[in-house]
C-alpha cells in the first residue's frame, strides 16, 4: 500500500568517467581566472618605469645600443601597448616567461629550480597546521565553556596576532642561538656528506623551524574553524538522533560530528593556499631557504620584474592546482557534491 511518488535519481555514470569529467570541468573553470591574472600581470609590468631591456642592460652593465634594439625587437617592446600585449600573451602560451636579469637565465628554469623547496614547505606546513588545528579545535569544541577551550581559543587569538617572520626570529633566538638545537637557516649543511639517508635527515632538521613557524601562523585559523564547525554540527539533528539511537560516544564524535565538520576545513585549505604561499615569502627569507618566496624577494631587491611577473603567474597556477586537488578531496568527503560536475558550485 505504500507508494513512492518520487524515485531516486538516475544512475550516475561510472566513477572514473565522473572523475575525469569533474577534473575537466574544474580546469575549464580555472581558465578565465588564469587569463585575468595574466592580463593583470601585464598591466603591472606596464606600470613599471623603464622596460625590461633597460633593467636587463643595467643588470648586466652593458650599454650596447644595437643589442638593446635587438632585445626590444625580440620581445616586441618597441611597439604600442596593443602589440606588446599580443607578444606577451603569445609568449605565455608557449610558456616563455622571459629572461631574468638577476640570474641572466630563462625565468621558467629559475622558477622550476626553486619550486620543489617551496612545495615541500607548503605541503608540510598545510599538513601540520590543518591536522593540529583539527585536533585542537575539536578538543576545544568538545570541552566548550571549560578552561581547555578558553586556553585554546585565547591561544588562537594570540597566535593569529603574531607576525610570522617575528615568530621565526624568536624560534631562531631560542632554538638556534640560545639552545643550539637546530640550524639557524638554509636548507642543508654546507660542505657535508651524510650519505643519502643522512641528507634527508639533514634537510628535515633544517626544515623543522621554518615549517613549524609557517604552520603556527595558520594553525589558529584551522583551530577556530574546526571549533566552530564542530559546535555547529553538534547542534544538528543527526547528532541528537545518533545519541538517541544509543551509539557509542566515540562514534558520535568521530563519525557524526567530526567528519561533517571537516568539510569547511578542507574548503579553507584551498582558499588559504594563496595566503600560505604569500606567507612563505617572508619565512623563506628569514630562514634563507632557496624557494619561490625567497626568489620573489630577490626579484624585488634586484628590480627583476620579468622574474617577479613569472613568480606571480607560477604562484597563481600553483594555487589553482591546489584548489582543484582540494575540490577533488571535498568531493570524496561530501556525497552531495559528488553527483554531477554542474552542482559543485
Amino acid at each position: 500500500m505504500t507508494s513512492h511518488s518520487d524515485s531516486m535519481p538516475n544512475a550516475p555514470p561510472s566513477g572514473a568517467a565522473r572523475f575525469v569529467r569533474f577534473v575537466f570541468w574544474r580546469i575549464a573553470q580555472a581558465i578565465p581566472v588564469l587569463a585575468l591574472v595574466a592580463v593583470g600581470v601585464f598591466f603591472l609590468l606596464e606600470l613599471a618605469e623603464g622596460d625590461a631591456v633597460d633593467a636587463y642592460l643595467a643588470g648586466i652593465g652593458s650599454g650596447d645600443a644595437g643589442f638593446a634594439a635587438d632585445l626590444r625587437e625580440r620581445y616586441g617592446l618597441g611597439d604600442g601597448v596593443g602589440s606588446r600585449f599580443a607578444t606577451y600573451i603569445m609568449r605565455l602560451l608557449v610558456l616563455d616567461f622571459g629572461q631574468s636579469v638577476a640570474f641572466s637565465r630563462d625565468v621558467g628554469s629559475v622558477i622550476m629550480e626553486r619550486l620543489p623547496n617551496t612545495l615541500l614547505m607548503m605541503v608540510s606546513a598545510i599538513a601540520l597546521s590543518a591536522s593540529f588545528g583539527v585536533v585542537l579545535g575539536g578538543l576545544a569544541a568538545l570541552r566548550r565553556g571549560g578552561p581547555l577551550d578558553a586556553g585554546i581559543t585565547f591561544g588562537a587569538l594570540v597566535l593569529n596576532a603574531m607576525p610570522g617572520f617575528w615568530l621565526g626570529l624568536l624560534g631562531i633566538i631560542l632554538f638556534a642561538v640560545k639552545l643550539r638545537w637546530l640550524p639557524i637557516g638554509g636548507l642543508s649543511t654546507l660542505d657535508a656528506d651524510y650519505g643519502p639517508l643522512g641528507s634527508v635527515l639533514d634537510v628535515a632538521r633544517h626544515l623543522i623551524l621554518p615549517v613549524t613557524t609557517l604552520a603556527l601562523t595558520y594553525l589558529a585559523l584551522y583551530m577556530r574553524l574546526m571549533r566552530g564547525a564542530m559546535i555547529d554540527v553538534d547542534n544538528s539533528g543527526w547528532v541528537l538522533a545518533a545519541r538517541a539511537r544509543g551509539l557509542p560516544a566515540r562514534n558520535v564524535v568521530l563519525r557524526h560530528i567530526g567528519r561533517p565538520a571537516l568539510l569547511p576545513v578542507v574548503t579553507m585549505i584551498g582558499l588559504q593556499s594563496g595566503t600560505l604561499l604569500g606567507g612563505s615569502i617572508v619565512i623563506e627569507t628569514v630562514f634563507s631557504i632557496p624557494g619561490l618566496g625567497a626568489l620573489a624577494y630577490e626579484a624585488v631587491n634586484q628590480r627583476d620584474l620579468q622574474l617577479l611577473a613569472g613568480i606571480l603567474l607560477a604562484g597563481t597556477l600553483l594555487v589553482v592546482i591546489v584548489n582543484i586537488v582540494v575540490d577533488l578531496a571535498y568531493g570524496l568527503l561530501d556525497p552531495r557534491v559528488r553527483l554531477g560536475a554542474g552542482d559543485a558550485q
Binding site: W238, R255, L263
Partner: peptide, 17 residues
Amino acid sequence: IGMIFQNPGASLNPVLT
C-alpha cells in the same frame, strides 16, 4: 527507548550512506 524526530532530513548524517 527509541526515538524519531520531526525533521527526517536532519536526523540522518548527510555524508554517510
